[in-house]
Design a protein around this nucleic acid. Structure first.
Length: 419
RNA sequence: GCGAGCAUAGCCAAGUGGUCGAAGGCGCCUGUCUGUGGCACAGGAGAUCACGGGUUCGAAUCCCGUUGCUCGCCCCA
C-alpha cells in the first residue's frame, strides 16, 4: 500500500481510459454546437450561500453532501455541488438578461459531493449539462429534452428510456402535496420506516420509494399531472405534443420527482433499459423560480445534467465502438552516442514541423528498441546508426509492412511535413 | 448516516496452521538473434502476504482492532 492514495471517492483517469472521455466530451460539444449552446466554465468553488439558496436547505445535497470550507479571508466557500446554480449566478452577474432570450449555455465540469462511493457514484464526478435561461415557452422544454435524447444516441446509447413528468408550480403544487399527504396518511400503517419520515419532511419523495409495498401504494397515489393548474396543464400538454411531433417517445411516470427544490413543471430523466443502482444517466427539469431565488428578476429556465462517469460505464457496457487515441507516429532508434545526438536533433526538427516523434530508450540494443516500437504501436521507426550518421540519412521503416528505405534527413522531413 | 463482502508483486491470481526463504499467468527487462519488432524458447527483476495487536513451538492462513476498497440502502449524475 503506497503512502498516499487518491482521496476516497476520487479516481485517476489513466491514459488508457481517456478515449472514452474524449469521445463523450467530443459528442457533447458537437451536439451543443448544433443546438446553438455556448460553453460556460464557472469556478470550481462558489459562495456557500449560492447552493443553500439555490438547491434548497432541506435537500440532502445541502444538508450533508457539500464540501464547505472557510478560506483564509474568512469567506464560506463550497466546492461546486451542482451545475445549475453557478450558471444562473453567472447569468445574473453578467447581465445576460440583456441578451436575446433564452441564453443557451453548456458546461463540462467536475462536481463534488460528500457521499459514500459505490458503483457509478463518486465524491468527485463530472457532468455535462446545459441550461436555457429566459424563455418560459414549452418548445424550449422540448428542445432541451430533444438535445438530451440526441446526445444519448450520438454517444451510442440507444437502448434508453426517457421518463417525464410535471410537478406543477407554486400555484398548484401545495394543493397537490396536500392531497398526496392525506392519501398516504390514511395508509401510514403500510409504509416503510423511511417513508414515514418522508411523509413529514418531503412528501413528493414518497412516490419513488423502492420498497415493494410502498411502490404499490405509489402506483395508486394521486398524480401531479391530474392536479395541475391551468397554466401548468397547458404547458405540460404542449411539451408532450412537441415531443410527439419529433417522434421522441417518452414514458410519463407520475412517480418521477427530483431531489432539488428548484424544479417546477417539467422534469425528466434518461435511464438505461436494464434497471440497476445509480441508473439515472441524465436528469433535469424546469426551474422557473430559481433565478428569483438567487436575487434576480423572475426568470424562467430549464436544463439538465448528466454524469460522465456513468455515461462512460454504459458506453463500455454497450460495447460502443469508440475510436482509439492516436498512437505515436514515429519512434527514433539510435545506435551509439553519435547517433544519439543525431536522434535528438531529428526528433526536435520533426516536432517542429508537427510530426510526432519519441526517442527510444537508447541504452537498449536495436532489437530492444524495435520491441519498444512494437509495444508502443508506432506506425514507423527511424533508425540512426553509424552508416546513417556518416551519410546524413535515416532508415525509415514502416511497421505495418515491414519495409524500409534509406532517405536523406532532408527528404524525410520534407515528405512527412507534407502528409 | 445504516448494512454486507473483500484485502497476496503494476494487473489477474494459487495458497485455509509447519513442506511459503509465497505457485502460476499477464505485463516489464535481458538473451537465443554482434544493426531490426510481432511468434517461440531460456533467464531476470519485482511482495514488509493492507496495517497494528493477540493466540500458537510455528500465522498469508485462526481471533480482535484499525485503515482501505467494493457492493447495497439513503440520496443523486
Amino acid at each position: 500500500m503506497p503512502t498516499f492514495q487518491s482521496p476516497r471517492g476520487t479516481t485517476d483517469r489513466l491514459p488508457a481510459e481517456q478515449k472514452y472521455w474524449r469521445y463523450i466530451e467530443g459528442k457533447a460539444m458537437d451536439v451543443a454546437r448544433r443546438f446553438g449552446y455556448g460553453r460556460i466554465d464557472s469556478p470550481m468553488f462558489e459562495d456557500a450561500g449560492l447552493f443553500i439558496r439555490g438547491v434548497g436547505e432541506g435537500t440532502d445535497i445541502v444538508e450533508k453532501e457539500m464540501y464547505v470550507f472557510e478560506d483564509r479571508g474568512g469567506d464560506m466557500l463550497t466546492l461546486r455541488a451542482e451545475g445549475t446554480a453557478p450558471v444562473c449566478r453567472a447569468y445574473l452577474q453578467h447581465g445576460m438578461s440583456n441578451q436575446p432570450q433564452p441564453v443557451r449555455m453548456y458546461y463540462i465540469c467536475p462536481v463534488f459531493r460528500y457521499e459514500r462511493p459505490q458503483a457509478g457514484r463518486f465524491r468527485q464526478h463530472h457532468q455535462f449539462g446545459i441550461e436555457a435561461i429566459g424563455d418560459p415557452d414549452p418548445s424550449v422544454d422540448a428542445e432541451v429534452i430533444e438535445l438530451a435524447w440526441t446526445f444519448m444516441h450520438d454517444i451510442g446509447l440507444s437502448d434508453m428510456t426517457l421518463v417525464t413528468n410535471s410537478i406543477g408550480d407554486p400555484e398548484c403544487r401545495p394543493e397537490y402535496i396536500r392531497s398526496l399527504k392525506s392519501y398516504y396518511e390514511k395508509r401510514q400503517a403500510h409504509l416503510c420506516q423511511d417513508c414515514k419520515t418522508r411523509l413529514e419532511r418531503n412528501p413528493l419523495r414518497l412516490l419513488d420509494c423502492k420498497v415493494e409495498t410502498c411502490r404499490a401504494l405509489g402506483e395508486e397515489a394521486p398524480k401531479s399531472t391530474e392536479c395541475l393548474c391551468n397554466d401548468c396543464d397547458s404547458h405540460w400538454n404542449r411539451v408532450q405534443s412537441y415531443l410527439d411531433a419529433m417522434g421522441i417517445a417518452n414514458r410519463i411516470d407520475h412517480r418521477l420527482v427530483r431531489g432539488l427544490d428548484y424544479y417546477t413543471r417539467t422534469v425528466f430523466e434518461i435511464q438505461p433499459a436494464v434497471e440497476g443502482a445509480q441508473s439515472t444517466l441524465l436528469g433535469g427539469g424546469r426551474y422557473d423560480g430559481l433565478i428569483e431565488q438567487l436575487g434576480g428578476r423572475p426568470t424562467p429556465g430549464i436544463g439538465f445534467g448528466s454524469g460522465i462517469e456513468r455515461l462512460a460505464l454504459n458506453v463500455q457496457r454497450a460495447e460502443v465502438d469508440v475510436p482509439d487515441e492516436p498512437s505515436p507516429q514515429y519512434l527514433i532508434a539510435t545506435i551509439g552516442e553519435e547517433a544519439r545526438v543525431a536522434g535528438v536533433r531529428l526528433a526536435n526538427r520533426m516536432r517542429a514541423v508537427g510530426v510526432g516523434a519519441i526517442l527510444a530508450n537508447g541504452g537498449r540494443a536495436l532489437r530492444g528498441q524495435m520491441r519498444q516500437a512494437n509495444a508502443l504501436a508506432v506506425s514507423g521507426v527511424l533508425i540512426l546508426g553509424q552508416d546513417e550518421v556518416r551519410d546524413g540519412t535515416v532508415m525509415v521503416r514502416d511497421m505495418s509492412t515491414s519495409s524500409q528505405e534509406a532517405l536523406t534527413i532532408e527528404d524525410f522531413l520534407n515528405n512527412v511535413a507534407v502528409e
